[in-house]
Amino acid sequence: MKGDLVTAPSGEVIELADIGLSRLLDDEIVRIWDVSLAPGECHPWHLHHNPYVVLSLQGSDGRMDWLDGSPPRYLSEYRGGAVYRPISPVHRLTNIGEHFYRNRLIELKDLGEHRKEPLDIGNGGRSTRGAVLGPPTADGRVAVLVHEHVSIWTVEIPASMHRELNLKAVPHVLSWIDLLDDSGVSVHQGGSLKVSNPAAHPRTLFVLELSYLEPVR
């Protein structure tokens, strides 16, 4: 967590940063962060205690470095893409691309800090640009990433219009791609939902279903 001290293999003592730049929402189920990096900018060393989802609002190329000296991991995130990730060793993220990068990072507390030990989710999942995961749902949602723990869609709301979303009776996180302050994220407890777009242009919404919270039958 922010302020914790860790020691690098070189012996250097490092103070960890927050998981994101600003905390947008925090309740019993999720903690949502904004992560924004200009080209060349780095988000400092930090540590995830919860499995988490990343919803990409603006894409760029990135490099993830590990404090333990493991080889870096190279990323290419794109607008409308998503990632489901396990907890991981201390790392930092650098925007090595030419474009501004921004995401919404959602920590899933019931898979991490609410348990004695975080759930081992394996490799999680990652969306693929251009992949077709099936036809749109009847209410217009297009699948981005489907995993047994989470399902993620995008849905476009036309200008000055609304859509009726028919969602499962489990909590959902909603995040507008083009609303960049904390008004752009919310949690819906499940079931039907009317989503309005008062703008004079179409807007796209991420819909993240927390499938792992579905009651066991």
Results as ranks from 00 to 15, higher is better:
E15K: 13
L16V: 05
T94Q: 06
V83C: 00
G59P: 06
V35E: 02
A199F: 09
G191F: 03
E15C: 06
E113V: 15
P44T: 01
E209R: 07
A38E: 15
Y78W: 14
D65M: 02
L205F: 05
G3R: 02
L213K: 09
Q189C: 00
H43I: 02
E214N: 13
I157Y: 03
D178H: 10
F100T: 13
P136W: 02
E164H: 12
D181H: 12
S160K: 14
I32M: 15
Y212Q: 11
P86D: 03
P44V: 06
A143V: 06
A169M: 12
V30C: 13
S22E: 03
L21Q: 09
W45C: 01
G190K: 05
P135T: 10
V6E: 03
I19K: 08
R102Q: 10
D34V: 09
L75N: 10
S76L: 07
S56D: 09
A82E: 00
S175V: 02
R79V: 08
L16I: 04
D181C: 11
A159P: 08
R63C: 07
G191K: 14
H43E: 05
P9E: 06
I14G: 05
H188V: 02
E156S: 13
L25C: 14
S60E: 01
W33P: 08
L193R: 07
G122E: 07
D34I: 08
G184N: 02
S76Y: 03
V90K: 00
F206H: 12
E15Y: 05
P51S: 09
P136H: 05
S183P: 00
G184S: 04
R129L: 10
A38I: 06
V6R: 08
E28K: 11
G59E: 01
E41Q: 08
Q58H: 14
G97V: 00
P198G: 14
R126W: 12
I87Y: 04
S76C: 09
E12G: 11
E214D: 05
R217C: 13
L5V: 13
E164S: 13
L25S: 11
Q58I: 15
V90S: 06
K168P: 10
D4W: 14
W176S: 07
G190L: 10
L67I: 03
V6M: 09
